[in-house]
Design a protein around this nucleic acid. Structure first.
Lengths: 123, 123
DNA sequence: CTGTATCCCGTAAGATACTG
DNA sequence: CAGTATCTTACGGGATACAG
């Protein structure tokens, strides 16, 4: 049988799957992006990203498990928890940047076919 | 500085969502990656990516709808269909490259925490 | 404030069989 | 070969209420 897929393509494929397994989904990159500049508390994130606490909790755990965020409990009055990116997460910056760049540059193109939100736009 | 969500962050967020809406999911980037070098036929893709025809069909339609792949019917013996990337898809190269790079460089790290590997596959 | 516990829905994804 | 038709399962994602 002819070798349809070269070993190069295979490993390429595998590497991409590895990445996608970690960062795919609706939220992970957005969360990491939100943590890019500063440390953020749980509820801050729910508000900023408009994500339900249930989902956020799960996503943060995933990210923590993959060593991309660090969770810190601060013994304040009611107790606050701060999330911050790890150094490892910083290695995702080029990827995040690429995602942002593409969305920014090709916004109109995307808008033509689909565009799900923003209620500020009058209907 | 205490402006929790600056307009910059908002638009950043939006741009990322736009990108994610188009390329998120398990398959789209892998498909585009497979089409990077050459034109590929439908069944070739199902074999190379180990994706079921149903899913592949849907993904290709999505990509076509977003002007990322071009479908060409060749009037051969039983009829073959070739898929190729559009010029627009080429603008995703930096993103795809970033996905590949990260998976490649941080493979070990990922392996430690999760690795849904396919045991049937030997290399 | 920081989550967890339920309940629910839509869709992604897969297996298989079948048609043009 | 290139898909489509079903059917089924799994999971992502959301709403809400509640607990620590």
């Amino acid at each position: 049988m002819l070798d349809v897929q070269s070993p190069v393509c295979k490993s390429h494929h595998r590497a991409m799957r590895d990445t996608l397994d970690v960062i795919s989904g609706k939220w992970k990159l957005l969360i990491l992006s939100a943590l890019k500049e500063r440390t953020v508390r749980f509820n801050e994130l729910t508000r900023e990203l408009e994500i339900s606490p249930r989902i956020l909790s799960r996503e943060l755990k995933d990210l923590e498990r993959n060593k991309l965020v660090k969770r810190t409990v601060r013994k304040t009055r009611p107790v606050t928890v701060e999330y911050e990116r790890t150094a490892h997460a910083a290695t995702l910056d080029p990827l995040i940047e690429a995602v942002y760049e593409w969305g920014y540059l090709h916004y109109e193109r995307v808008a033509g076919t689909k565009r799900p939100h923003d209620p500020t736009e009058a209907e």
